[in-house]
Amino acid sequence: MSTARQTRQREVIVQVLQQAEGPLSAPELLARAQVTLPGLGTATVYRTLKLMQEQGEAHAVHLDGEPMYESSGRGHHHHFSCNGCGRVFSLHSCPVALPRGTVYPGGFVVEDHEVTLYGRCPQCAAQQAQAPAPGVTAG
Protein backbone atom coordinates (compact mmCIF):
# COMPACT_ATOMS: atom_id res chain seq x y z
CA MET A 1 0.00 0.00 0.00
CA SER A 2 1.48 3.33 -0.99
CA THR A 3 2.04 6.19 1.45
CA ALA A 4 -0.13 8.54 -0.66
CA ARG A 5 -3.06 6.14 -0.44
CA GLN A 6 -2.62 5.78 3.33
CA THR A 7 -2.45 9.57 3.68
CA ARG A 8 -5.67 9.97 1.68
CA GLN A 9 -7.39 7.35 3.85
CA ARG A 10 -6.29 9.14 7.00
CA GLU A 11 -7.39 12.51 5.59
CA VAL A 12 -10.88 11.16 4.92
CA ILE A 13 -11.15 9.56 8.37
CA VAL A 14 -10.01 12.80 10.06
CA GLN A 15 -12.49 14.80 7.96
CA VAL A 16 -15.39 12.49 8.86
CA LEU A 17 -14.56 12.76 12.59
CA GLN A 18 -14.27 16.55 12.42
CA GLN A 19 -17.59 16.94 10.59
CA ALA A 20 -19.55 14.55 12.83
CA GLU A 21 -22.17 16.04 15.15
CA GLY A 22 -20.94 13.72 17.90
CA PRO A 23 -18.78 10.67 18.48
CA LEU A 24 -19.02 7.81 15.98
CA SER A 25 -18.60 4.07 16.35
CA ALA A 26 -15.98 2.51 14.09
CA PRO A 27 -18.69 1.00 11.81
CA GLU A 28 -20.41 4.42 11.52
CA LEU A 29 -17.08 6.05 10.74
CA LEU A 30 -16.32 3.40 8.12
CA ALA A 31 -19.72 3.84 6.43
CA ARG A 32 -19.36 7.63 6.26
CA ALA A 33 -15.76 7.44 5.02
CA GLN A 34 -16.69 4.89 2.34
CA VAL A 35 -18.92 7.51 0.70
CA THR A 36 -15.68 9.25 -0.32
CA LEU A 37 -13.40 6.19 -0.42
CA PRO A 38 -15.48 3.12 -1.32
CA GLY A 39 -12.50 0.76 -1.00
CA LEU A 40 -11.70 1.76 2.60
CA GLY A 41 -11.53 -1.28 4.87
CA THR A 42 -12.43 -1.93 8.48
CA ALA A 43 -8.84 -2.78 9.49
CA THR A 44 -7.59 0.53 8.09
CA VAL A 45 -10.18 2.46 10.11
CA TYR A 46 -9.19 0.68 13.35
CA ARG A 47 -5.45 1.14 12.66
CA THR A 48 -5.97 4.82 11.89
CA LEU A 49 -8.10 5.36 15.00
CA LYS A 50 -5.43 3.68 17.15
CA LEU A 51 -2.73 5.88 15.65
CA MET A 52 -4.85 9.01 16.04
CA GLN A 53 -5.43 8.17 19.71
CA GLU A 54 -1.71 7.56 20.29
CA GLN A 55 -0.95 10.95 18.71
CA GLY A 56 -3.68 12.72 20.70
CA GLU A 57 -5.74 13.59 17.61
CA ALA A 58 -8.78 11.52 18.65
CA HIS A 59 -10.12 9.86 21.76
CA ALA A 60 -12.64 7.20 22.63
CA VAL A 61 -15.88 7.91 24.44
CA HIS A 62 -17.44 4.83 26.03
CA LEU A 63 -21.22 4.82 25.92
CA ASP A 64 -23.04 1.68 27.04
CA GLY A 65 -19.74 -0.20 26.75
CA GLU A 66 -19.24 0.60 23.06
CA PRO A 67 -16.27 2.77 22.17
CA MET A 68 -17.11 5.74 19.98
CA TYR A 69 -14.55 8.13 18.61
CA GLU A 70 -14.29 11.86 18.22
CA SER A 71 -11.65 14.41 17.37
CA SER A 72 -9.63 15.78 20.27
CA GLY A 73 -9.49 19.47 21.02
CA ARG A 74 -13.24 20.07 21.14
CA GLY A 75 -13.02 21.44 24.67
CA HIS A 76 -15.16 20.47 27.63
CA HIS A 77 -18.43 18.97 26.44
CA HIS A 78 -20.91 16.19 27.10
CA HIS A 79 -23.07 13.88 25.03
CA PHE A 80 -26.72 13.19 24.23
CA SER A 81 -27.62 9.67 23.12
CA CYS A 82 -30.90 9.34 21.20
CA ASN A 83 -33.01 6.36 22.21
CA GLY A 84 -34.87 6.61 18.89
CA CYS A 85 -32.24 6.67 16.15
CA GLY A 86 -29.18 5.73 18.20
CA ARG A 87 -27.12 8.75 17.16
CA VAL A 88 -24.90 10.49 19.71
CA PHE A 89 -24.57 14.27 19.72
CA SER A 90 -22.05 16.57 21.40
CA LEU A 91 -23.52 19.06 23.86
CA HIS A 92 -21.48 22.19 24.36
CA SER A 93 -23.01 23.28 27.63
CA CYS A 94 -22.25 21.58 30.91
CA PRO A 95 -25.28 20.57 33.00
CA VAL A 96 -23.05 19.91 36.03
CA ALA A 97 -21.17 22.52 38.02
CA LEU A 98 -18.42 20.21 39.22
CA PRO A 99 -15.01 21.86 39.42
CA ARG A 100 -11.79 19.87 39.33
CA GLY A 101 -10.62 19.11 42.86
CA THR A 102 -14.11 18.74 44.36
CA VAL A 103 -13.95 16.21 47.18
CA TYR A 104 -16.93 13.92 47.58
CA PRO A 105 -17.76 12.18 50.86
CA GLY A 106 -15.43 9.25 51.38
CA GLY A 107 -12.44 11.14 49.96
CA PHE A 108 -13.22 10.87 46.23
CA VAL A 109 -11.37 13.70 44.47
CA VAL A 110 -12.86 14.78 41.13
CA GLU A 111 -10.34 15.18 38.33
CA ASP A 112 -12.77 15.26 35.42
CA HIS A 113 -16.32 14.27 34.55
CA GLU A 114 -18.41 13.06 31.65
CA VAL A 115 -22.16 13.28 31.35
CA THR A 116 -24.35 11.45 28.87
CA LEU A 117 -27.99 12.40 28.62
CA TYR A 118 -30.44 9.91 27.09
CA GLY A 119 -33.69 10.74 25.35
CA ARG A 120 -34.91 11.65 21.87
CA CYS A 121 -33.16 13.97 19.42
CA PRO A 122 -35.27 16.75 17.83
CA GLN A 123 -36.09 14.63 14.75
CA CYS A 124 -37.14 11.56 16.76
CA ALA A 125 -39.12 13.69 19.24
CA ALA A 126 -41.01 15.31 16.35
CA GLN A 127 -41.77 11.91 14.80
CA GLN A 128 -42.99 10.59 18.14
CA ALA A 129 -45.22 13.63 18.64
CA GLN A 130 -46.84 13.06 15.23
CA ALA A 131 -47.47 9.33 15.80
CA PRO A 132 -50.88 8.32 17.17
CA ALA A 133 -50.92 7.10 20.74
CA PRO A 134 -50.79 3.30 21.16
CA GLY A 135 -54.25 1.78 21.10
CA VAL A 136 -55.78 4.88 19.51
CA THR A 137 -57.23 4.45 16.05
CA ALA A 138 -57.89 7.22 13.61
CA GLY A 139 -61.43 7.62 12.53
Rank of each mutant, 00 (worst) to 15 (best):
Y104V: 04
S81I: 00
Y104H: 04
T44S: 01
G41E: 15
R8L: 13
G106D: 10
F108Q: 09
R87K: 15
V14F: 13
P105D: 12
Q128D: 10
Q55V: 02
L40R: 15
L51T: 09
G139W: 03
T36E: 15
G75F: 06
V136M: 02
A138R: 09
P23R: 02
K50C: 00
G84D: 15
V45H: 09
S81D: 14
H113T: 08
S71N: 00
S93G: 10
T48D: 15
C85V: 00
P67I: 00
Y69W: 13
Q55N: 00
I13F: 09
P99H: 03
P23I: 03
E66V: 14
V109K: 14
A20S: 03
L91Q: 14
A129C: 06
G101F: 14
A26N: 13
A125N: 04
H79N: 04
Q34W: 14
I13N: 05
D112P: 01
R100N: 06
E11F: 14
V115P: 07
S71W: 00
H79L: 07
E114K: 08
T3D: 07
L40P: 14
Q127K: 10
P134S: 06
H113G: 08
G84M: 14
R8N: 12
A58G: 02
V14T: 11
Q6N: 10
E11N: 15
T116H: 07
A26L: 14
D112C: 00
G75M: 00
T116N: 00
P95W: 02
Y118Q: 11
V88T: 11
V35R: 06
Q123H: 07
P38Q: 13
A131K: 12
L63Y: 11
Y46W: 12
P95L: 09
T36D: 08
L37H: 13
Q9Y: 09
C82K: 13
R120C: 06
A126D: 02
V103P: 04
G75H: 07
P27F: 10
K50G: 05
H92F: 10
P23W: 07
E114W: 08
P27V: 01
Q6E: 15
P67E: 04
Q130A: 02
Q130H: 04
C124D: 10
Y46M: 12
A138V: 09
L24M: 07
L91P: 04
E111Y: 08
